[in-house]
């Protein structure tokens, strides 16, 4: 179609005035440029697609991070639980020893052992606090998952744009507003989904939980 247009412009060019000749020449150059651009994009597209597939994506790094923190946290929680169990056993043992020593008039020694038992109870509380503190991992994992979703979406849109418009095009507004709007919408939605304990309690009250 572009070639037909050029031929038409060329054939018509002989019948127009001199000042219009320039316009037809410009139009002809424009048509040739469009044709060259189409050919370039068509040749570049397979390369862009294959190279974009090789791009190290931030989302895969975040997924790895998510997995690693999850595994680490679970291991710490498992070990902490084992330590807690061991401490409970030792506390019971010490309590039994104290009882025995008290009857054998070993009052002083019993007192010191009682102190040791007290320290172990204290440490047990600390271990519980450590486990409670580790629950942050669930929250982190949720945020990371949301981030991965957003990154995947942005990546696919960018690749789409690159393939459609070609990497030589720049400085144009290529739908950034749409993507940003989408991201903002997602962030807004994520804020709405967060629920505080007070809200949960209010809902539970409605269901008759007192």
């Amino acid at each position: 179609m572009a070639r037909q247009s050029i031929m038409f412009i060329r054939s018509a060019g002989g019948n127009v005035q001199q000042r219009e000749q320039k316009l037809y020449e410009e139009l002809g150059e424009l048509v040739r440029f469009v044709e060259r651009a189409k050919k370039a994009i068509s040749e570049a597209s397979p390369g862009i697609l294959s190279s974009s597939a090789q791009l190290p994506t931030a989302s895969s790094h975040l997924s790895d991070l998510n997995k690693m923190t999850e595994e680490g946290t679970l291991e710490v929680m498992r070990l902490t639980e084992m330590i807690q169990d061991n401490r409970d056993r030792m506390t019971k043992e010490l309590t039994a020893v104290v009882a025995r020593l008290q009857t054998a008039d070993g009052v002083k020694l019993a007192e010191r052992l009682q102190n040791v038992a007290g320290v172990m109870v204290e440490d047990g509380k600390h271990l519980t606090e450590i486990m409670t503190a580790l629950t942050f991992q669930d929250l982190v994992a949720q945020r990371v998952k949301k981030l991965v979703t957003i990154l995947d979406e942005v990546q696919s849109r960018l690749v789409e744009l690159v393939v459609i418009f070609g990497i030589q095009q720049h400085g144009e507004n290529t739908g950034t507003e749409g993507t940003a709007g989408h991201l903002l919408k997602q962030l807004e939605e994520s804020k709405k989904t967060a629920m505080k304990q007070q809200v949960a309690d209010d809902i539970l009250d409605q269901f008759g939980f007192k």
Partner: peptide, 24 residues
């Protein structure tokens, strides 16, 4: 940490005894 109203309602319907939202 799945702090969504729908999750809570689902839990109540499933017979939960009570519900705590992280962090707590």
């Amino acid at each position: 940490a799945e702090a969504q109203q729908s999750n809570l309602v689902e839990a109540v319907q499933a017979g939960v005894s009570n519900y705590i939202v992280k962090p707590f």
